[in-house]
């Protein structure tokens, strides 16, 4: 913990106003399981927040509540910076699976969010190709998802999230099913894109190492009932690269976060 305090705090995210605010959010499923118990969390603009915890801690549920895919049983989610009558939030979601339409080409898959907003193929073409370029797949626009590797499919999924130019990017264990080499590569890609566009990212993961590498803030959660147990800043400077991954600072953060996670899981089992 001491290593963390000594690090210089990054100024911008901590000071800026929250963009998403969870206020006492609870969720109980119809079978009686308490997925989330009284969770309060302010996400500030430009932050890269990881929700870290064991399975069943409600981290994915929290994400789904933020997107309004499911409603909270009690409490509420506020978007303080948006107009009151704004219907859709400017957010994109990346699922654990690539979730591509198998019958559509890579181009058509990335075009989808724009198509649903009424943009024709011609009007959307530049933006779609730009998004594909960002993930390095512009050569594969005409391919079908089945012709791509797992990592490439995930890139298409990320390109589809990028194409709407969202303010907030929500990722639900997006790289959990990928091999380590691909995962490291995509971690770097995501960090580069985050720094380029200044998004706010909420990243759900169960990997301590991934969360430390990516985020400037880790929210540690515990299960039964799902709740927040720790909120840790990871104030190592960006850009982070392979040298950060092998540094002692990184190892120190991983140790701290692991400790917090184990403490959380230990306290969870007492109940």
């Amino acid at each position: 913990m001491t290593a963390m305090v000594e690090k210089k705090m990054q100024e911008t995210p901590a000071q800026s106003a929250p963009i998403i605010s969870l206020k006492g959010v609870s969720k109980t499923f119809s079978n009686g399981t308490v997925a989330l118990n009284n969770m309060s969390l302010d996400i500030r603009q430009g932050e890269f927040v990881s929700l870290l915890g064991p399975s069943g801690c409600g981290k994915s549920t929290a994400l789904r509540i933020v997107t309004n895919l499911t409603g909270p049983t009690s409490g509420k989610v506020e978007w303080p910076q948006e107009r009151a009558n704004q219907k859709e939030h400017e957010l994109s979601f990346v699922f654990q699976e690539p979730t591509l339409m198998p019958w559509a080409t890579v181009f058509a898959n990335v075009w989808l969010p724009l198509r649903l907003k009424g943009l024709s193929r011609k009007d959307a073409e530049d933006r779609v190709m730009e998004a594909l370029q960002m993930v390095g797949l512009d050569q594969f626009a005409k391919s079908y998802p089945r012709e791509l590797s797992g990592g490439m499919k995930m890139r298409v999924s990320i390109a589809r999230a990028l194409v709407t130019k969202p303010k907030v990017l929500l990722m639900d264990e997006p790289f959990a099913a990928l091999d380590e080499i691909t995962r490291f590569k995509l971690n770097n890609d995501i960090l580069n894109l985050w720094e380029t566009f200044g998004w706010t990212v909420i990243f759900v993961t169960h990997s301590v190492f991934e969360s430390v590498y990516l985020s400037n803030r880790i929210v540690v959660m515990a299960a039964r009932p799902g709740r927040v147990v720790n909120d840790m800043p990871i104030d190592a400077p960006y850009p982070r690269d392979e040298s950060f991954r092998t540094s002692s600072v990184y190892a120190g953060f991983c140790r701290d976060v692991s400790g917090a996670l184990h403490a959380a899981m230990g306290s969870g089992e007492e109940h």
């Binding site: 859709e88 699922f95 339409m101 989808l112 649903l116």
Partner: peptide, 22 residues
């Protein structure tokens, strides 16, 4: 696919769009 259905909801797809494209 349920995730795709969620995706369509997230992007505010109309009933007709969900039928036609998904």
């Amino acid at each position: 696919d349920h995730n795709l259905q969620n995706l369509f909801r997230l992007y505010g797809a109309s009933r007709w769009q969900t039928l036609r494209y998904l």
